[in-house]
Amino acid sequence: MNLFRLLGDMTHLLSIVVLLLKIRTVKSCAGISLKTQELYVIVFLTRYLDLFTKYYSVYNTAMKLVFLGTSIGIVWYMRYHKVVKQTYSKDEDTFKHYFLILLSIILALLIHRAFDVIEVLWTFSLYLEAVAILPQLVLLQKSRNIDTLTGDYVFLLGAYRALYILNWVYRFLMENHKFRWIPWISGLVQTALYADFFYYYIKSWKNREKLKLPA
């Protein structure tokens, strides 16, 4: 465990805390893409298959349970909670996210490090996470005004994977890890998709103005 990875995990956890804070306190999920949340549940389910078969540390197991529990809880809130589900921007959350799942499955079957169930599903989870934010970004572009907590949530979610890239650089240099194409490329694509959001988020933060993405 290095500082970059710890910071990355904490940033990821914080993004989920911010999202839960928004949903629970404001009792609203306006501006949040249910499709992105559902994709994240699939990412965690397919990535943490070794939860009960491989033990790395208390931290690793605890964090996997937290990420699985909160992501499933958020989908439940947005789908079934009587108040919250009324606030879901159903008509604007229109991205065809099933294509993302299909593409990721095909890519994982074609490009992987080993052809066994755990490895292919793990690879699938990396490809899917790289594009999971797309429905959310498309929804943000349609939202006239993006509330602060939603903007902070997306920013933290993007920042965590950027920190993971630094963690991979560290592991490559300091732990003389071999270069791993799949996580690296997936992580770079994932972070690159946030590029223009980062630009407008930081600009709105500097100019103290409301966050607005160009349509």
Partner: peptide
């Protein structure tokens, strides 16, 4: 071993 392939990460 899997750690080698970042399976020890979240």
């Amino acid at each position: 071993d899997y750690d080698e392939d970042f399976h020890d990460e979240l």
